[in-house]
Design a protein around this nucleic acid. Sequence first.
DNA 1: TAAATAGTGTCTTTGAGACACTATTTC
DNA 2: GAAATAGTGTCTCAAAGACACTATTTA
Lengths: 300, 300
Amino acid sequence: MDQGRGAVQPDPRHDDRDDAEGAFIAAYDPRDYDPIAVTVDVVALTIRDGSLHVLLVQRGRPPFEGRWALPGGFVHSVRDEEDLPDAAVRELSEETSLRLSGEPEGSSEAGRAAAPAALARVHLEQLGTYGAPGRDPRMRVISVAYLAFAPELPDPEAGTDANEAEWVPVGSLGLPDAPGAGQRPGTTRRLAFDHARILADGLERARSKLEYTPLATAFCAPEFTIPELRAVYEAVWDEELHAGNFHRKVLSVPGFVESTGATTERGGRRGGPRPRLYRAGDARLLHPALLRPGREDEIR
Amino acid sequence: MDQGRGAVQPDPRHDDRDDAEGAFIAAYDPRDYDPIAVTVDVVALTIRDGSLHVLLVQRGRPPFEGRWALPGGFVHSVRDEEDLPDAAVRELSEETSLRLSGEPEGSSEAGRAAAPAALARVHLEQLGTYGAPGRDPRMRVISVAYLAFAPELPDPEAGTDANEAEWVPVGSLGLPDAPGAGQRPGTTRRLAFDHARILADGLERARSKLEYTPLATAFCAPEFTIPELRAVYEAVWDEELHAGNFHRKVLSVPGFVESTGATTERGGRRGGPRPRLYRAGDARLLHPALLRPGREDEIR
DNA sequence: TAAATAGTGTCTTTGAGACACTATTTC
DNA sequence: GAAATAGTGTCTCAAAGACACTATTTA
């Protein structure tokens, strides 16, 4: 352990430390720690046209100029000290025209954080940190990846450092374990850095989270129908679900959804009765969980 | 996104990048990224005397001198570029006398990694990253936390920067949601930095992992009995489990354990037949899972 | 011999999934 | 009217948990 070495910029906001802080300032040696660039990258997912999309930006600068990448960038620490989830929200709005007002609420700092904004209620949680030497050709960069679930949002506009920003169907990316994997690999848009791995990890996290949390509602409007919720599960899991059993199951899980008493104005575009409207309930975990069907093989 | 700025130390190991790498070197501006110190901290868990213990070190330097903390320290990036899991293993062995030879195997970089060494087979996985401004009074420090599951190990010796290193029962720490919470809070050993939060997150992760992965076997010797495995669950969950039902359940999950055909030499110290010996099976997920009993309340 | 424990049998309840069916809406 | 969909009823099978019971070992 060498967190005990050196002192620079003692932070006046820190109010839970021992005294005798001044003593070790003299012992500070900058070579004792290695400065490393820290970035955040965001896997932002949404449902469009019934399939799962991820927000990608086309890089406007080297390295990987012209290649597509996850939105992200360096964490600010000198000019303004920002928290990691704040940096993720900032990058998400900087890179695109998406405005995500409202501050993230986080119980556990490394855990989930939700941004219940006026316009967009986006769920944000930490995905993992990627720091292998060589993952950035320029220098040692450690990237803290965040995962965002968003309801359907407008088309993004490119940010300052990106040529373009776009919602891209994840099935078109030819990822190893992606829901829509298995199509012509020639069409594959190869992502910059190790972003294909980060995206794959984010997708697996999203699929898993839908099993035991009510986060599928984060992909929906504030009021939604059970069939809309089912479409979210089908898009993320890339599985067709039995409408009747899904309906009964959702209503049987305490706190998953609560009824508004209303129905939609119109039935489905190809017929059918008008479905009822629901809001997200107060459950934080689904009990019992909604398990993905047919995973007996992926277990070994 | 500003990962497109600047270039320093282009890494020759990186073989999957665009050409025209030279062009942007001239555009490098060190002020475009903010150097941040990166540390790793390890929540190392083991079972001793039937209860869950965590490895703590007593800090030998300010800040928080004399306080207990998770083992950890700065990631090396200048003198030798090390990967994050390597840094976690190094800190774990540096801080204590524990020798963890063998290199971590990791499928997903941000995911789990196991160190199947000769002496100690330790499971290592990334827990999360903690980077709030002010969490270290000296400077901006971002800590990547790792979670380790170890079988019973010898008492550690203190490392260079620590006064002491010790396996501490987690129940004695008075954590908000710890298994052994609820005892006199005056005895609480307050941890340095935000390590109480990191430890609490690690404990919750461990409890959850035991539900749907076979990682309880990582706390056991290579050959173990079902009652020993049950003791692991009882220690981590702080719940008494029904011996008969647990036994049948473990054997019914495909790939959880496999029989060695042998039994122990002696029965329990207070009587009973000699239990059979098992090895860890080849399952990576438990299906169906072993769910913690009585969690209906923690769901909202 | 008494007490403790390993391991199995059995019953009940819950839940998942297959299937059928009715009612409602759109084209 | 035809087709599609929302929502419910019902049946079967798997699994969790409660409880009982036997066999084996230690003190």
